[in-house]
Structures are given as structure tokens and as C-alpha cells.
Design a protein around this nucleic acid. Structure first.
Lengths: 247, 247
DNA sequence: GTGTTTCTTTGATTCAGATCAATGGATGTA
DNA sequence: TACATCCATTGATCTGAATCAAAGAAACAC
């Protein structure tokens, strides 16, 4: 059982629930009610936050760190079905148990709400259900985009797709200037990337080496990535557009 | 542009919106308001109902027939990302355009609501957003389950997974007795199955032949399928459980 | 009937990625 | 310093599914 550890965040300003998950159109008193039922939890890298099938008594959003959602077959084959970055929502109002394992990839901090009070509040506050619906539709779009990656792309395209998604999310999160060079640290091991892409870790390693050799990416060490030409990367990913990310 | 054709449905009892999509907990007057803004549309097999990226001015649910959601790359590779059977909801309240192509696989009938009035009603009626959130979470689970199929299963397991999903949905829809022999007609061509499974149509054909040879399924003609032992099929699919379908 | 189209099956061959196997850094620690 | 441990790379070989190619079966038109 993961153990909860108290965290001190000075200000709710850090809590993405306030900004993205729930409150885009909320009134002040709703914010206050949310504040009253929220609490923080932290987990260490490698800890499983929730096991697939187990009851989950909270919902919340990721404040710091990286988590993954994954499904595993009896024989050990696993497929990652989601990557959670700060500001992402975790949990399913109205559902009993978790549908997949949620695992902390790095040390992380979550802002949580006990499920019952949150659901009561949701019932009283139409905006919240609407906001969650919007977010869930976004997740559904992302999952379906990933189905195209898994079903139809080559290993090289898969790697390029993953890198472009991480680069995009990183840039959005850090409000980077649009024309700045894209630089980031890979938040995943080769094995985790393989689980996300439906490949083996050897294939991931080989394709990363190939992209590096061809100048699509620049690697310093094993994790630090620079993208000299984002359009080029998108091209390698087989994407027909940049999703409005670049001008 | 698909042309709308008037359809006569005797009774709203046929309209799954009433039963599943929206109204599980609705009051009578909400049902009446929904009735006032709804209309029917029919499409012929092969028609594209919505093109990816185009504006979509309605939402609705499938009354009769089969439709598919799919994404296509510039070079023609396509991946089906969803299979719509009667009672499934189509459209995304709060969104401008469609994210994927929606194509009628058979002749079909939809029960539609113009988007703006539907959204207005949603804003006034908290139950509707909550019901749609539940449905969207179901779709998200299904999409993520499919990611495991696409990323980690073998061709044979993929075919068995697809057959078990169709069998399950068919049984649920037709309220078949749990112990009845499962018999249905495949609603998809081999090519469509291939697009769903991330395979080629030749591989689909070969694996279906293999499952038939091994007695996992019985085929009459090209489409009519009998499942003599559903547990066996699930086993071939690599599923660890039957999802509560059988006792 | 004969052709035409659409869907499907089956066979032969190729190839991308898996698997098996070593080796190469980092980092930590006794 | 030696020696684990963890993560990543690279090489050799194998294999499952793709690709290339042909032919069968059903539905429909003329």
C-alpha cells in the first residue's frame, strides 16, 4: 500500500485543479468548497498509486512528476495506455474501481479530493461535470490518436510520435516561446517507452540511435534531447499537421 | 454531403437516447424537451456521415445499423478507432469539428439533436452532462483496452478479441440468455476488420481460417459465425476474465 | 447463359521487428 | 579499489505478419 506523505504547498496557485481541471468557469464559493475537501499526497518513483481493479477512494490531479497508466496480461506483456504529466486528472467520478494500474515514474505530488465529497459537489455544480466531460473527451481523442500510432506506424514513426508528443506537452507546460529550440529530458526509460509504443526496448534503443545518426534529434547522455527542427520530427512521425502547435 | 432522408419510427421507444444516452435519471419534462428537438436521419451503406476536421452541427445516437470511426494518414494507411453499434452516442458536445471520419458500414438510422439546443439543454440539466461523462469514460476504457490489443496481441489473439467483443455486444443488445449458443453475423468485411486490428486483410483471412480449422469458431458462408465455447474464445483472445459477461 | 465486380481465400516470398546474447557505461557501496 | 546493479547499446539470428500474386465464390447486370 502506498503511504501518504504530507506535503506543504504554499499556495493553491500551484494546484492545477484550480486552473484546469475544474474551475475554469467556477464561482469563488465553489473554489472555496473545493479547497476545503482537497489534500496533497506524494509518492516515490516506482510506487504503484492504484492497482487495476482495486477500489479507488479519491480523484485528483497531478501537481509534480510523471505517472503512467498501464494494462498487463497474465503472461506479463504490458501496454501503457496513458502518460500523466502535471495538470492531468486522475480518477473516474462515478466509478468504483480503477481500470488500470497507475504507477509513479518519478517522485510525484498529487492534489486529491476524497471521491464521495467530490461527487456530491459535482452533483451540485453543473460546471464541474461539464469540465470533466471536456477533459475526458480530450483524453479519448489522445487515446484514439495513439491507436493509430500503435496499429499502423513503423517503429521509427512510433518513436518520432512519442518524442513529438512529449516535446509538445513540455513546451505547453513551460510556456516556451514558439520559436525556441526544443530541449527536454526524456521522462521515461527505454523500457517504459517500449511499453507505450508496443515495441521491445531493443527496438526503441536502435531507432533512437538511428534518429540521432540521421540528425533528427541530438542526444546528450541517455535522456537529454534537443530537437533542432520540429517540423522534421513531425514529418518523421508521419503526422499530417502539427495540431496547431507551431504558428 | 450525405443527404438526410426522413424516417418514420412509430415510437420513441426505439430511440436509444431515451434509454441509455441521456435519460437514465431524467424527469418526464426533460424527456419531453429532448423529444421536441430530436429528429431522425438515415444513411446508406458506404456513406461518410462526417469527415474528420469538418464542423459537425449535431450529436445523436445510433438507432439501427453499424458505423465506424477511423483515422487515415496521408499515404492511405487507416486505423479504425471505434465501432458504433445501435445505442452508441455520436458527437462531442462543446466541440467544433469531428476528430475522425464517421462512416456508415451498413444502411443506418440515427436519432439526432441539433448541437446548439442540445448544449443549451445540457447546461440546464446536470444529469445529462453526468450521463455523457459516464458514457465517455466507458468509451475511454474501451479505447484503452483496444490499445492493449493493438500494441501487444498476436494476430490470432486480435481476431479472437474482436470476435469476443462483437459477440458480447450482440448478446447484450439482443438480451440473449447467458447460456445460449452465441450466433451472429459479422458486421464487417475482412478489410474493415484489418483496419480495426492493425493487420492486413490477408492476415485476417488466414487467422479466421485457422480459428475455424481449430474449432474455436464455426463459419457458415463468409459472415455467419457460431461460437461453440465462449470461454475458449476468451482464452484465445488472451483475456484474463470475461468482464462479468458470463455468470 | 456470360461477363463484371466485389469480397475472400490461399500460396510463395520478403522483411521489420522480436528474440537471444554480449558488452558498455553510470552510479552506488562495501 | 573492487563489484554490484541498473540502464542502454549493439550484434546475430529468427519469425510472424506484410507483401506480392493468383484464383475461387457470390452477387449482380446484361
Amino acid at each position: 500500500m502506498p503511504q501518504a506523505i504530507a506535503v506543504d504547498l504554499q499556495d493553491c496557485g500551484d494546484c492545477p485543479i484550480r486552473h484546469r481541471a475544474v474551475c475554469a468557469r467556477c464561482e469563488t464559493d465553489e473554489l472555496e468548497r473545493l479547497d476545503q475537501i482537497k489534500y496533497y499526497r506524494s509518492y516515490e518513483a516506482g510506487q504503484t498509486i492504484v492497482w487495476s481493479g482495486e477500489p479507488m477512494d479519491f480523484v485528483g490531479s497531478l501537481v509534480r512528476g510523471i505517472a503512467t497508466l498501464s494494462q498487463t496480461m497474465e503472461d506479463g506483456r504490458t501496454q501503457m495506455v496513458g502518460l500523466l504529466l502535471p495538470s492531468d486528472f486522475v480518477g473516474r467520478p462515478g466509478r468504483r474501481g480503477a481500470a488500470y494500474d497507475v504507477v509513479a515514474t518519478t517522485d510525484l505530488v498529487m492534489c486529491c479530493f476524497r471521491k464521495v465529497p467530490f461527487e456530491e459537489m459535482m452533483a451540485r455544480t453543473p460546471h464541474i461535470a461539464q469540465r470533466l466531460l471536456e477533459m475526458t473527451l480530450d483524453e479519448l481523442d489522445a487515446a484514439r490518436e495513439w491507436m493509430l500510432v500503435l496499429g499502423r506506424k513503423t517503429a521509427r514513426e512510433k518513436i518520432a510520435s512519442l518524442l513529438s508528443i512529449i516535446a509538445r506537452r513540455d513546451a505547453t507546460l513551460n510556456l516556451r516561446a514558439q520559436d525556441a529550440k526544443i530541449v527536454f529530458d526524456l521522462p521515461l526509460t527505454r523500457e517504459a517507452m517500449a511499453d507505450y509504443l508496443g515495441l521491445t526496448l531493443e527496438t526503441v534503443s536502435r531507432q533512437i540511435s538511428a534518429l540521432k545518426r540521421d540528425g533528427v534529434i541530438v542526444l546528450e547522455g541517455k535522456r537529454h534531447v534537443t530537437i533542432p527542427d520540429f517540423e522534421r520530427l513531425l514529418d518523421e512521425a508521419g503526422d499530417d499537421s502539427d495540431g496547431g502547435f507551431l504558428s
